[in-house]
């Protein structure tokens, strides 16, 4: 008992007073509830507000299914593409020294810095009928704008920094001595990459992929500009939600929104599960 009293005393000595603590905790909770939990709840409450029948009906609409398919297709192309680009960029920037390195770093951040709508416009100007590329594309019958390729390109552009940005600090902190050890032991570049570099960054990489995926499925601004909003053809889920909402189909809009929110929640759940499953391994690698 005396020990507990001791601990309590110590805790009080290094902490703030009870009033301050309660106020700080309340502020945090209110903020969390208002900004994160309440919006999420609203989505689901509104979606199921008119019963599960209406909900399923809204999802089963052909336009919705088409939007879901397109969203998944775009993510399936954009995420692996950025996986390769991101890993290559991080590897180049952290393990080698060359001129223009900081310029490249700035360039990687560009999609974060530029407004998504502007990014979309860039592609319209690049591939549009009045651009330098436009006539050539038309002659060769290549449709980029207002079609799937345009959406994929815009999504890759917007989600480019996620994986690279996640990996660069991690790989920088780890330095290159393990790679140097591997090549001094006779390993080829590929072997070094797959057996030494990649295992060392796999958790950061997973996190980057999940973030990249979440954004690829949720991107609105840039995709909105390049897609042309053709129902059943070039509408992704976020665009479809907006159209439904503007058509005063709030229940349907929230139903589709809940689908998108669920995709995001599943992504986060997978991440948490993996982290719990491999907690020991992650801790062992961070130590030292």
């Amino acid at each position: 008992m005396s020990e507990t009293a001791q601990t309590r005393k110590v805790r009080r000595a290094i902490g703030e007073g009870p009033a301050t603590r309660i106020v700080l905790i309340m502020v945090a909770l209110v903020f969390l509830g208002l900004m994160l939990i309440a919006p999420l709840l609203v989505v689901f409450v509104e979606a199921f507000g008119r019963g599960i029948g209406v909900y399923l009906q809204a999802l089963a609409l052909p336009d919705t299914m088409a939007a879901l398919q397109l969203t998944l297709l775009v993510a399936v192309i954009a995420v692996p593409a950025n996986l390769i680009f991101g890993v290559a960029a991080a590897w180049l920037i952290t393990k080698f020294d060359f001129k223009g390195k900081s310029f490249l770093l700035t360039l990687i951040d560009l999609p974060f810095a530029v407004s998504p709508v502007v990014s979309g416009l860039i592609f319209v100007l690049l591939f549009g009928a009045n651009s330098a590329l436009g006539p050539w594309l038309e002659d060769n019958n290549i449709q980029i704008l207002y079609a799937v390729p345009g959406i994929v390109i815009a999504t890759i552009f917007i989600t480019f920094p996620f994986i690279a940005r996640e990996l660069i600090p991690l790989m920088e902190q780890q330095g290159s001595s393990e790679e140097e050890a591997a090549v001094s032991l006779g390993a080829s570049g590929w072997r070094t990459f797959f057996q030494v570099t990649l295992p060392n960054v796999k958790w950061g990489l997973l996190y980057g992929v999940l973030l990249c995926n979440a954004r690829a499925m949720g991107e609105f601004g840039a995709v909105s500009v390049v897609s042309g909003h053709i129902r059943g053809l070039t509408n992704t889920l976020p665009l479809h939600i907006e159209i439904l909402y503007n058509d005063n189909k709030a229940a349907a809009a929230f139903a589709v929104a809940s689908l998108l929110a669920m995709l995001a929640l599943v992504t986060l759940a997978v991440k948490t599960l993996l982290e719990a499953r491999f907690a020991g391994e992650i801790a062992a690698q961070r130590r030292h």
Binding site: S177, E178, E180, A181, A182, S184, L185, G186, A187, S188, R191, Q195, V196, P199, N200, E281, A284, Q285, H288
Partner: peptide, 26 residues
């Protein structure tokens, strides 16, 4: 060359025996 680094540079995700066997397997 056998190179030994100041901060060991062991492969953190491999067991001791896989670390030592790395050069032979490569």
């Amino acid at each position: 060359v056998g190179f030994v680094f100041q901060h060991y540079a062991l492969f953190k995700h491999m067991r001791v025996m896989d670390n030592i066997a790395f050069g032979l397997r490569a």
